[in-house]
Design a protein around this nucleic acid. Sequence first.
RNA 1: GGGUACUUAGCUCAGUUGGUUUAGAGCGCUUGGUUUACACCCAAGAGGUCAGGGGUUCGAAUCCCUUAGUACCCACCA
Length: 909
Amino acid sequence: MNIPSKFDASKFEKKWYQYYLDHHLFDSDVDENKKAYTIVIPPPNVTGALHMGHMLNNTLQDILIRRARLLGYNACWVPGTDHASIATEAKVVQWLEDKGIKKSSLTREEFVDYAWQWTKKYGGQILNQLQKIGCSCDWRRTKFTLDESMSESVIDVFIDLYNKGFIYKGYRMVHWDPQAQTTLSDEEVNHQEINGKLYYVNYAIKDTLGHLTIATTRPETILGDTAICVHPEDQRYISLIGKTAIVPIAKREIPIISDAYVDKAFGTGCLKVTPAHDSNDKELGEKHQLEFIDIFNSDGTLNEFGLHYKDQDRFVVRKKIVEELSTLGHLHKVENYKTNVGKSERTNAIIEPRLSEQWFLKMEELAKPALKAVVNNEIKLYPKKFLNTYKHWMENIKDWNISRQLWWGHQIPVYYYGKNKKDYVVAKTKEKALEKARAISQNPDLKITDLVQDPDVLDTWFSSWLWPISVFDGIRHPNNSEINYYYPTKDLVTGPDILFFWVARMIVSGYEFRNEKPFQNIFLTGLVRDHLGRKMAKQLGNSPDPIELIQTYGADGVRVGLMLSTSAGNDLLFDTKLCQQGKNFANKIWNAFRLIKSWPIDSELSPRDAQIQGLKWFDHRLSQAIETIDQLFNRYRISDALMCLYKLVWEDFCSWLLEIVKPTYGQSISINVYDQVIEDFEKLMVLLHPFMPFITDEINDHLKENAKPLIHAKWPKSHQHNSEILELFGFIKQLVTGFRHFRKQNQLPFVKPLKVYQIQPSFDEKKSSDYLTFFNACIEKMEHLNMIVGEPPTSQGKTISIQTYRYFIPMESKQKISKKKLIGDSIEEVSQYLSDLKNQVSSEKDKTQLEKMSHEFLRLNHFLASLNKKLNNQNFINKAPGQIIQKEKSKAADTKIKIQQLIQDIRNF
RNA sequence: GGGUACUUAGCUCAGUUGGUUUAGAGCGCUUGGUUUACACCCAAGAGGUCAGGGGUUCGAAUCCCUUAGUACCCACCA
C-alpha cells in the first residue's frame, strides 16, 4: 500500500463523512436490547451561522455521543434548529426592506410566507456546517421548532396549561422594544451605564406661591406624572403631604403623597411618579390608586397626552421639553449623571418600560420540582458552581411573559368572539373555538368570521422548553415507544448564558409533562473568548470562521485544539495556535502509522528481549491510562482526558515504545511483535476516535484486513495493571534521561555508542536479575550503549544511578561533537555560496529561484538583526514589557527557524 | 447596591476531604541536534515566596480573618 507522507485532512473528511451517511452509521432506532444514550442538540437559530461557541459545544456532544457508541450504548443525537422568532423576523424584515418591501405593507399571511421562503433559502446552513466538524447526529431525526408536530405540541401545551390555570392575561410593566415593536423578556435586555443628565424641575404647589423641586433623568415623562411622592418622615416636606402640585406644561393637578419607598438622600427627596413608565412608579401607582397615563405610541413617539409634542420621538421631545421648561422658568438646574439604561439585545434600541396587556405563565408552582431535582443532585450540574445561581433564580422565579408582538412563531390559540376583549376561548382550531364560543356565549348565531385570533405569537423559548420531549413527539403521544425509550436524555451540553432562558425551563416542562427529568447531566461550557480575553464578536472581528479553520488545520486538528483548552465551565481563551497543536498531533499520529507500516515483517524471527519487555510495559501503561481516561470522562473532564491520551500517544507510544520496538533500518520485525504493536495502535485509535474521528478511521482502515469503521468498535477495557512494571519503567526513563544528560553535558554525539560499565546491585533483590534483563535490554536499545557488566577499570568518569542500579561511564568515551557547517556561518558566506551556485546553473528558472532565495535570506537576516537590536534596547512601553519581549523573542525564534529552513532548501537545491 | 466565584511558571490551566509534591501539565522559552516515521520533529534544560498581610496547626497552595485586583449573575434609585 502506498501511504502518503502527509495526512490530507479535507480529502479524508469528505470521504469518511459520506461513508458514514451512506451506511447510516449515525442512525439510531429503538432497540430494547440496548440501553439508550440520548443527547438532544441545543437547537441553533435557523438563521445562524456556525461560530466558535457552536463549534465548542457540538464537538463536546459529538465526543460524548461517539464514546457512548463505543461503550455499546444505542446512542442517539437528535439535531434541529430553532425558529428564533425575534432574530429571524428581524432578518426577514431587513431582507424585505432590501427588496423594497415594507413589513407594514404586507398582511400577516404574506409576511409569514416570505419568512418561510427565507428560511428555506438561507436557513439551516448551520446543520451542514455541523457535518463539516464531524457531528454524528441522526440526521433523519432533524427537527425544526415550527414543524407541524412541534407546533402542535406547543399549542397543546398552551391549552393544557391554560386549562390548569397556569396561564393568565395581565397588565404588566414590560420591556418594550420600540424598534422591533415587541416586548422583550428580562433576559433579552442588557443594562448599560451611560452618561446622562439629572434634571431638576420645579413644580408649583397649588394655592401657594411655593414650589417643590424633583430630580429626573427623563423629563419627557413629566407629561405622564400623576403624583409627587416624598418620604413620610422627611421634615422638609411633611407639611406638603396631601396638597396638590401642578405638572408644568401639562398644567395637570396631581396629589402630593408620601411613601417610605422614597430615598430622602437622593436628589431633592421628591419623586415624581409616572406609573405608566416605570416599574417602581407602577407599584406606587397601584398602592396609592393613582391614575395611569401612557404618553407613548408603540414606536416610541408621543401620543395625544404628549400635547404639542404628539408624534415626535421621545429623545427629540426630551431636548425640546428641557428648553421649554427652561423658558418657562421651571428648570432649576441640570447635573451630569451616570445612569443605567436597558437596551434590546436584538435591536440595541433603548427599551421603554411600558404597561401592556400580555400573556403570562405562573411559575412558582411549576418551578418547585425543577428546583428540587437539581438541589437533590437528581440532575447533575457540571461544574457545580452554577448550583447556587440556579437555586437563587428558581427560588425567586417570576412569572414568564410568553407573548410576543411578532408574526413569526406559534400564534397564540386564543380566539376573541365578542367586542369585549374579555370574551375569548382557548382552542386548538378555529372550528373548535367556534363551538366553544357558541356554548359559552349561548349565541348559536356566532359565525367563524366573528372569531378573531390573538395576533401575538409565543416566546421562542415556549417551544424550545419542550425540545427534549417534543423531538420524540412525547407531548402529542405521551406513550409512544420512542419517548419511552429515549427519554430522559443523558447529557445536555450548552452555555451558561441560557441556563435560565432554556435549561431551567426544560427541567420545569420535563417534570410537568413527563413527570421526569429531561436529562441526567448538564454540562455547561464556558464562553469562547479571544486570546486577549475579549468576547468573540462580529464587530471586533476577532471571531475566526470555523469553516476556514477546518480548511487550514483539519476538522480533527480544530477539535483537538478546542478540547485542549476547555476546562469545564471556565471561559476559554481561544487561539489558533491551539489548532496548530491539534494539527501537529494529527501529523504525529500519521507518522507513527507510516513508521509501523514501513517495517518488513518476518514470521520466522523471534522477538528481542527489549521488545518483549517494552510491549509488556506498554500494555500496563495503556491499561492505566484507560482507567484514568474513564474516570475523567465520568467527571466530564474532557480536556484532561484528551491531554492524557495526547501524552499516552506522543510520549509513551511514540517516544518510548516505538523507539524500543523499532527494528534498525533495513531489518525486519518479528510478526509477533508487529501484531502486538498493531493491536495497541488499534486501541489507541479507538480511544482517540471520539476526539479525532477522521484520521483514526482512515488509519484503522489500513491497520488490518477487513477493518470495520471505528464508529461501532469496542472501547478498550482497563485491566489490573502491575504497578511494579510501571515503576520499573519509570526508572528506565530516568536512567535514559541521565545518559542523555551526560551526553549533552560532555558534548558526546548521540550516534556514537557509549561504553558503560554496569555495577551489579550489591544487595539481595529477589527479582533483581529479571529486572536487570529488562533494564539493560531497554536501555541498550535506546541509547546505543556498549554495556559491560562488572567493575570499571578506572575511577575517571561519571556514575548514574537509580535507587540501587548504578552505571559507570568512563571519561575516555568523550569526543567532541564536530559541528557540521551547513553552508556558511556569515551572511557573506551564504551570499557568496548562492552567487557561485547561480553561475553554475544554466536554466533561467533555476536562476530566478536562486535570486528569490538570496533575496529572502537577506530579508530575514535584516529582520532578525532589527529584532535583536530592539530586544537589546528593550525600550518598550511600560505596561507588560515581559509580554512584549516574549512576543518579540518568539518572532526572532520564528525567523531563525525560517533561515534554517531556507539554508536547508539551498543545500538541497 | 445584593450575590457567586476567582487570583498557582512568560501564557492557558490542573492540584480531589489540610500530610509522598522537592507545587504539576500543555504551549512558549533556552541550548544542542538531521539519528531512514515525523523540523508539523528529536533531545536536554531553565522558569513559581501558590495576589499581599495576619492567624489556626506538628504541618497550609489547600482552613479562618484582612487588603488589593478580576470575572460573572441578580436588581436597578428617581
